[in-house]
Write a protein that binds this DNA or RNA. Structure first.
Lengths: 169, 169
DNA sequence: ACTCTGAGTATAGGAAAGTAAACTCAGATG
DNA sequence: CATCTGAGTTTACTTTCCTATACTCAGAGT
């Protein structure tokens, strides 16, 4: 156990129950991608769609929500707007994923592989992902900085630099 | 490109736009964990909480929603109900994560590390995760079955066994 | 019997999110 | 200059979610 954690426990603090759970990176990420269509839009961008009409067609998402989600994703820097031009038509906007958006792909892959394992239809997955370099199947896994594969049960979560106690009631 | 994919393209099918996007493991996973409090409940279980009152206290989630989410997570086999007994009190239920629930941890870690990178407060993360074995920092990464680290941009997604075209309009 | 506690259920009002369909707007084409 | 198209906006309606409070229920202790 960490020194900070020990000091807190000596003071009678329960790390689980007395911490400020709103000061959490998961909660903050969900503020951005937790709304209904957001992850699915990201999935489509990742699969190669980029135009408003493409998202609408393939997702069946209402246009006003689609517009709102795209605007938000652009404001957050997860997507960026570029333009495309079909011959004989004017320039129109298209949406491309940024590096910041790409950093969400491990989370999306995690959701994908859980669904593949527990909720795929009996035939198997609808889409499969492979490494462009070697062709092998890819998946999201947890690794430690020394390169070991880490099972979830072997992860220990301890207070970090921004650990805070919950405000008094 | 895959043989299936080629055959489909020869038939004038656009893999991105004409596929049945509702037949998707991500969408199906979100049906289970896409509601507002679900991932946060999972986070608390993962951090060590197990009792109704603990979830309520630390999340500040309304009791009726909490009860509904817990019931759903148990029905889905992500949590299991056990009992605990404080001295001088009767047995009460507690919620523990199952292996099926543990398999969601890579996705949760993916969300966590995105938030740590882009949305943490200036001091750093509130909680840090490390490998119980070696103490090194852990994170969610994508690997291929041959053990290569895979950047999201090097992943190729192709139709799998359950690929289906979208129903006619 | 009465009370206390943790784990819920029940209910009601307001806010937010989702859905559906009609409408606008900017340019390229006929 | 009327029409077509993709990309939105607007509006009206429905569903879900949030907040808050009150209530129930099963034992253990007094």
């Amino acid at each position: 156990m960490d020194a900070t954690a020990e000091a807190l426990q000596d003071a009678g603090v329960d790390l689980r129950l007395d911490r400020d759970a709103s000061n959490c990176s998961i909660a903050r990420t969900l503020e951005v991608v937790g709304e209904k269509w957001t992850i699915l839009i990201l999935r489509e961008v990742y699969y190669g769609s980029s135009r408003f009409g493409e998202f609408e067609r393939v997702l069946g998402c209402p246009r006003n929500l689609l517009a709102a989600r795209l605007r938000m994703l652009v404001e957050e820097g997860i997507l960026a707007v570029e333009t495309y031009k079909e011959p004989g038509a004017r320039s129109r906007p298209k949406y491309v994923i940024t590096p910041k958006g790409m950093d969400l792909i491990p989370a999306v892959m995690g959701l994908l592989q859980w669904g593949d394992r527990y909720r795929a239809d009996p035939e198997g997955p609808a889409m499969v992902s492979r490494h462009r370099g070697c062709g092998a199947h890819v998946d999201a896994r947890i690794r430690c900085d020394r390169g070991h594969a880490v099972e979830p049960v072997d992860i220990e979560s301890i207070p970090g630099p921004a650990f805070r106690l919950r405000p008094a009631e």
